[in-house]
Amino acid sequence: MSKRFLYVNRKAPYGTIYALESLEVVLIGAAFEQDVSLAFLDDGVFQLTRGQQTDELGVKNFSPTYKALGDYDVNKIYVERESLEARGLTLDDLLPLTYEDEDDDWAEKDSIKLVSAAELAEIMEAQDVVLSF
């Protein structure tokens, strides 16, 4: 029986390694065929912004990897509305994350679901394992 895993991302990328190493756990974890969700709240929403360019820092830009999550069957990506608004962002500022729905003739669908803090609280409560980075 599979467990429900939620990866909680509350930290911005590049300033610390947590965002990158969290993504590495998600990619490895995808092979275990569990029920996987990702939550982005607080500064974690900055992980998903478009236009990241890291060449002048000399570090790897890992933001394109988020777009591959759909291929790993990781397609429940919850972004908290209050966190976006508090940072002056809208969905248009975020990377377009999609997946192909095998139950719907492989139609391309959005992986990102905008949720309120209250909805996210319920989503957290519904998990078996919560991993925070």
Binding site: K3, F32, Q34
Partner: peptide, 20 residues
């Protein structure tokens, strides 16, 4: 060992608790 050991721990254990 690999990160899979962390996922495996989450699957096999009654509780997984993070300190960081």
């Amino acid at each position: 060992s690999g990160l899979g050991q962390l996922i495996d721990a989450g699957i096999e254990s009654d509780r997984l608790i993070t300190f960081g």
